[in-house]
Each structure stands twice: as C-alpha cells, then as structure tokens.
Design a protein around this nucleic acid. Structure first.
Lengths: 208, 208
DNA sequence: CACCTATCGCAAGTCGAGTTGCTTTATGGT
DNA sequence: ACCATAAAGCAACTCGACTTGCGATAGGTG
C-alpha cells in the first residue's frame, strides 16, 4: 500500500491548455489507445507492441484495455483494420486485366508495409480451439475483388465458365505466400506476370 | 506406450526396483522428446503442445528441452520436419498437368492434417527482429516442384518462356492462403481447377 | 577402475498475456 | 445540484515461454 504513493494527483497544479488527460473515458480513451497502438506498431514493431506498453503510452490502465478488447490480438487488429480500411479500392477501367493488375498492385503495396504485414500475420493466428471468430479481412477483400472478374465475364472478355474466386485466390495467394513464407519482394512485374499467367495460362500465353 | 526403458542394460540390481529416475541422455532423450512432441501434436493440437507437457510426457525436465531446442517453436518444427520429410514426392508421369495435379494433391492432403497445418502456421512466425531465419520448408518444397514445370517445358508441353516458379507459386499460394486465412476445405477438384487455370488461363484453354 | 566433463535435474525467477474482485470516479439524467 | 451507475483504476493472481546458477551423474577416456 505505502509502496505506491501514486494515490491521487495533487489537483493537477499545472492546468494545461487541453484538459488534463487523466482518466480518459469512453470514446476518448478508445482513440488514445488505438492511436498509441498504431504508433507503437510502426516504431516498435509487432513484437514490441505489448499491451502494457500500449496502456502506458495511452495513459490508461492495462485492465481497461483488456476489458474493451479482450485480447492483444483484437486490439492490434482493431487498430490496423480501422487504419487500413480504405487501402484497397476496386478499379473499373473496362479491362479485366488492367483492373486486376491495379487491384493486386495496391494489395502488393499494402503487403509491403509493416502494418500490412502485421495484419496479415495476425490474421493467420486463429485459435484452433476456439470457434472461428477471426475477422475475415483479407478473405473479404479478395472476394470483393472477384467482382472485377465477374465484370470481365459480363463484358465478354472472359468465358462464361470462369470461376472468379479461383482467379482471385491464385493471384492473391501467391502474394500472401510470398509475404508470409519467403518474404521475397513483391515487385510490380510480379503482379503483372501473375495476372497474365492466370488470364492467359502458361500455354497459350503471349506473355505480357 | 510411452515407457521406454528398453535396450539399455539396466543392471542396478541393488534393492531398488526399476522405479529409478530414468535419466535419459543424448540421443535417447532426443528421441523421447521428439516422439512425445509429435504425439501431443496430434492429440492435443498445436495450442495444447506446451513445453511443460512435452517434458512431462517424455519423462524429461523442461530445462533440458530448452537447452537443446532453445524455443518451443524450434522443438515443434524439428519434430514436424523430421516426420513430414518424405510426404511430398515428385511424380514423373510424362504429363505436366498430371504431375502438377499429383504433387499439389499431395500438398493439399498434407495441409489437411493437423501436423501439416501446424507446420505451416509455425513457418509463418519468423521473428522480424532476429536475423534467425525460419527454415524454408515450404518454399523449398515449392521450388523443388518447379522442376515438374521445367520438365514440361523440355517436353514441349509448355512454351519456352514459362516461369516455373510463378506457376508453382500461384497454385501453392492459393492452397496456403486457404489453409491459413479462410480455412476452407482443399478438395481434389480445387487442385485440378487451379492447375487448369494456371496452365490454360481463364481465357483460352478448353482442355482437361 | 578412477577420473573428467558434457549433460541433465532442479529450484527460483523474469516477462508478457489474460483474469478477477473490489474500489473509485466521471458522467448523464432527473 | 445530486445521485445512480457504467466505466476505469488497481492489486493480486494464473499460466506458459524462457533463463540462470548450481548440484548431481552418466559416459567415455586414460
């Protein structure tokens, strides 16, 4: 008890311009924690972003973080998804190939950032024991990109039997696998070649 | 089952029963721990395979495990790679398509086991901070499969400009992504469709 | 067989994730 | 202005990964 004299701040003598951020609540606290999380994420990396560090940086108690987000994973996921939400637009150029190249180029660029990689890696750590409750961020984005293929079919640029999900999984999967497994760079030519491979095939292909 | 006092001349005829604290050493201890690890892996799953549990099951002290394998990750990786080493043969049927279908079907089957999934997930958790490179199990297998494509090129079944690595990454990446992200099943038709997509392209080929 | 040393057992401890019971305070509603 | 209560703070745990110092011993060597 006496070991921690942090009992109460003596009336905050130095009244700053902004309201003393002691004991943030509700939305204010949420913002502060989320901001601290993304800040730590980009400075200390994923491993360095511990709940205690986030709480300290946000001026909030660790327990409060756990009460709101339950797990560290949820916290980081929340911070990342709200930040990266607008990062993957769906182009509509009238050309399937161009649409796909643009979308997956944006995806590749996202996967080349520390935050994109962190989000991918966390998305992979679903618990086998607990029922699936992983938020399907990437799967969702990928399936969203399937409309690019569907539009191509409607335009007559692709045969009617085309499986949009398969096309998108092949290209996206290669990018994900590179990021997660080999860590090899995701250059622009790679995306173009992958799209070409999937559209034209290894046989019939006038590559590029 | 687990008891392995075999092989060694126990001697110690002095009064005490065989209840002596069998202090396993060197290779014997290594075997026991590795066996216990794979056993726990298939019964308790990845999350349930804790170092303490492995040590207990192997009749060995936890410290000894850490001294030999340094981390839990290394231990499990070691156990899995030695066990799954012969799981991905390279077929040679004279037909690229058939070769690829067979290889990736085997891969899909492997990814459908608890051990395959565990190995994949652990392969993803390389530390960004440490230079300690994750052992490239999957990447290596994939690149090994690239010879299937190369043979196809040599046989004239594929054009000369074909990029073997790309073909293999597209199909494999899709399988990996399914396993890691969506957890969707990896049926036989999926592999056939993926190979067809990559060989014939979404446009062109109507062969199969 | 006696000796040496790498190897193993053991206890105690650090660190971060996650939990719980209880106290305190900031707000919003009347 | 007052009061009820949801939201935070706080301390004290549990648990598993990982470390360290030291004592005990198995195994091979001379």
């Amino acid at each position: 008890m006496a070991a921690t004299p942090s009992g109460h701040p003596p009336a905050s003598p130095s009244s700053q311009a902004a309201a003393a951020p002691l004991r943030r609540r509700g939305e204010r606290m949420r913002q502060a924690v989320l901001a601290a999380t993304t800040r730590l994420l980009s400075t200390q990396g994923l491993a360095g972003t511990t709940v205690a560090a986030v709480a300290r940086a946000a001026g909030v108690h660790e327990t409060s973080v756990y009460r709101r987000w339950t797990t560290r994973e949820n916290l980081i996921l929340d911070a990342l998804t709200t930040e990266l939400d607008t990062a993957l637009p769906l182009p509509d150029t009238g050309e399937v190939r161009e649409d796909l190249v643009r979308f997956f180029t944006a995806l590749a660029r996202l996967l080349d950032t520390a935050q994109g990689r962190a989000l991918l890696r966390l998305s992979v750590e679903h618990d086998d024991t607990l029922a699936d409750r992983r938020l399907p961020y990437w799967t969702e984005r990928l399936q969203r990109a399937a409309v690019l293929v569907r539009r191509g079919v409607e335009r007559g640029q692709l045969p009617a039997g085309t499986d949009p999900g398969l096309v998108v999984e092949a290209v996206g999967g290669a990018l994900f696998a590179r990021t997660l497994l080999s860590g090899a760079p995701l250059g622009e030519p790679l995306v173009r070649d992958l799209v070409a491979l999937v559209l034209d095939g290894a046989r019939g292909g006038r590559s590029r």
